Simulated assay, not measured.
Amino acid sequence: MLVKRTTTYILEEAKKEVEAANKNADEARKDAEAAKKEAEATRNEVDEKIAANNKIWEEKFAQLLKDIATRVYSRLDRVLINGEWGDQMKDIYAHFLPEGNFDHTPCIVKSSIQSMHHMKPFKYYNMWGKHSHYINNLSSWWKTYVKGTKMFCLVSKLKQLKSKFRNYNKEYLCDIENSSMMALKNLEYIQTQLALNPRDTYWYDKEIEAITEYKELQEACTNFLRQKAKVISIKDINGLQHYDPQKIQEAFLQYYIQLLGTEINTVSVNEKIIRTCTVCSADHVFTLLKPVTYKEIKASIFSIPGHKAPDPDGYSSAFYKDSWSIIGDEVYAAIQDVF
């Protein structure tokens, strides 16, 4: 009887465990089904949103194509000119560019009248004389034959040089600032390679060449920028600083009016009073009347700093200094011809 009860108890316990396991399995299956349904619902919701977005973009794209096909341009932008423009430039017109990222159309006013484009006044830039090809080019340009007086020949040759110098500037020195920066970058690259390969003599030679090139270009660039610089401020005779262009002009006038004075009524010179003072002796007069020598003319020209303002023809003293070995004799002859 004891064995029978024990066996029955074990069977009942095993049955309970099986039922509990089945119950847990049913719950797990229900949880899995619920999770599956939730995942399907989420996926369906995402699909619906994607489909809705796609539909919106398809509608927008279709509308965009429709707008492009039926696009109507309206000329809202206008160009205003005064009557003087209309009188002097009969063929003037407005050229409207594509709008790009702007909300208005950019416009350029054009005219085919060639006389509107005036050539800028010639100016000799000191950087030209520092270029390696300068002397050879000037020597060939200066051989032009001109017939006439010595001063006329000199002035004519200087006029002919202007077009030569303009072309020379375009060919060699049109972008001097960028060339100077590129030369510096090239020098830095070579020095970097030299630091990585200190025993390689090739980079030593390249460094010397790069330093020479950079110094020449940097000096030319500095001279160019110095000549291009303009007066942006000045102090007047009272010590006040001015930045307005009109005020700067007035400050110049005030200075020279104070320096040179104003017109007043004067009496005639009394020769008796002059003769009582120290006057030039006969030797002094002879010295003043002596012919001007080549050495004096050269010294006078070379005493003028090269950065000073040029003559009305655009040539500064720097031009004569850079070119004296070629044009010096003719400059001397022209000045002697005047005296």
Rank of each mutant, 00 (worst) to 15 (best):
residue 101 N to D: 14
residue 225 L to M: 06
residue 4 K to H: 09
residue 239 G to D: 00
residue 216 E to C: 10
residue 231 V to N: 01
residue 83 G to E: 12
residue 280 C to H: 14
residue 253 L to I: 15
residue 76 L to A: 09
residue 49 K to C: 03
residue 321 K to F: 03
residue 264 I to F: 09
residue 228 K to I: 11
residue 280 C to A: 15
residue 213 E to K: 15
residue 266 T to D: 05
residue 143 K to S: 07
residue 48 E to P: 06
residue 243 Y to F: 13
residue 112 S to E: 09
residue 58 E to A: 07
residue 272 K to F: 06
residue 285 V to G: 04
residue 71 R to E: 06
residue 21 A to R: 14
residue 193 Q to L: 13
residue 59 E to V: 10
residue 48 E to A: 12
residue 326 I to A: 00
residue 316 S to M: 03
residue 79 V to D: 01
residue 167 N to M: 05
residue 124 Y to W: 02
residue 191 Q to E: 05
residue 197 N to K: 05
residue 177 E to H: 11
residue 212 T to I: 14
residue 314 G to H: 03
residue 249 Q to M: 13
residue 126 N to Q: 12
residue 293 T to K: 01
residue 301 I to T: 05
residue 295 K to G: 10
residue 250 E to P: 01
residue 152 F to W: 04
residue 97 L to P: 06
residue 29 R to V: 15
residue 129 G to L: 03
residue 91 D to N: 08
residue 248 I to L: 00
residue 147 K to N: 05
residue 73 Y to D: 06
residue 89 M to K: 11
residue 284 H to N: 07
residue 314 G to Y: 02
residue 216 E to Y: 09
residue 196 L to R: 14
residue 91 D to G: 04
residue 202 Y to D: 13
residue 167 N to Y: 09
residue 176 I to L: 02
residue 28 A to N: 08
residue 287 T to V: 15
residue 149 T to I: 03
residue 30 K to F: 10
residue 306 G to T: 02
residue 120 K to L: 13
residue 81 I to K: 07
residue 161 L to R: 01
residue 108 I to S: 04
residue 304 I to Y: 03
residue 280 C to T: 11
residue 66 K to N: 13
residue 184 L to F: 13
residue 323 S to L: 00
residue 138 L to P: 04
residue 39 A to V: 08
residue 254 Q to D: 14
residue 267 V to T: 14
residue 320 Y to G: 02
residue 269 V to T: 14
residue 160 Q to L: 07
residue 39 A to N: 11
residue 68 I to Q: 09
residue 38 E to A: 12
residue 49 K to N: 05
residue 156 S to L: 03
residue 18 V to N: 02
residue 109 V to F: 00
residue 230 K to Y: 07
residue 319 F to I: 08
residue 287 T to F: 14
residue 102 F to V: 08
residue 61 F to N: 12
residue 79 V to G: 00
residue 206 K to Q: 11
residue 251 A to S: 01
residue 224 F to I: 04
residue 127 M to L: 07
residue 25 A to W: 11
residue 15 K to M: 05
residue 260 L to S: 04
residue 262 T to K: 06
